[in-house]
């Protein structure tokens, strides 16, 4: 029996994330745990870091769970597969620049800053279904049709990760310019969009993560 720990630190709705992982894991002996216990996170085979709201609030919420920030740093370093969603992905950056400057985990060299579509009539937040353009192949997108005619992902965000190292950029979405949609490095991956809300694309991506051996 293997387990996936979805980190519970009071950020938003974990119910639908847990349900999507349960659906993708159906038929395997994988257990999905929603937990705020660092011990359980250490024992899990894989870790999911969700997050909605503001960068600073998520950072503070995660730091408020005793031992959790350090545990995530340790487990990431040990090479455990770790998947961040939305602000959970943004927290992997060096810095968040939403309202106030906040330090992230620094696993991905970049800053989280406001999206600035070239076309000023485009609405902010970037909300709804968008296609993805692959910048670089990645195991987590195996078997998933991308590009203008491919599957769609569901986005809700006003900030995105501006990367210092373009080699870590896996996929972008077009919204008056390129918006960072997916980043990855070694055993760490993160999506700006919500796989748990992205129907076919989301479930396929989660299924790939559950089998990922980085």
């Amino acid at each position: 029996m293997t387990s996936v720990a979805i980190i519970d630190y009071g950020s938003g709705n974990l119910h639908s994330a847990a349900k999507a992982f349960e659906r993708a894991a159906r038929g395997s002996d994988t257990q999905i745990l929603v937990t705020s216990d660092p011990d359980k996170v250490r024992q899990a085979e894989r870790i999911v870091l969700p997050g909605v709201g503001a960068f600073r609030d998520c950072h503070d919420g995660l730091k408020a769970v005793p031992g959790m920030w350090q545990t995530l740093e340790d487990e990431a370093r040990r090479g455990k597969p770790l998947f961040g969603i939305c602000v959970g992905m943004q927290l992997m950056a060096a810095r968040g620049l939403e309202h106030v400057e906040t330090k992230g985990f620094g696993w991905i060299d970049g800053d989280v800053k406001v999206i600035e579509p070239a076309d000023s009539t485009l609405k902010i937040p970037h909300m709804g279904w968008n296609t993805l353009d692959l910048a670089k192949p990645h195991r987590l997108f195996d078997g998933i049709a991308l590009g203008a005619d491919g599957l769609h992902a569901y986005f809700v965000h006003s900030y995105h990760m501006a990367l210092k190292d373009e080699a870590l950029l896996i996929a972008t979405a077009d919204y008056g310019g390129k918006v960072t949609a997916f980043v990855a490095r070694d055993n760490i991956a993160g999506s700006q969009f919500h796989p748990e809300k992205s129907q076919a694309l989301g479930l396929a991506l989660i299924a790939n993560f559950l089998e990922w051996r980085p």
Partner: peptide, 8 residues
Amino acid sequence: TAEACFMP
């Protein structure tokens, strides 16, 4: 609904 539908 959230258990069965993976949409917003």
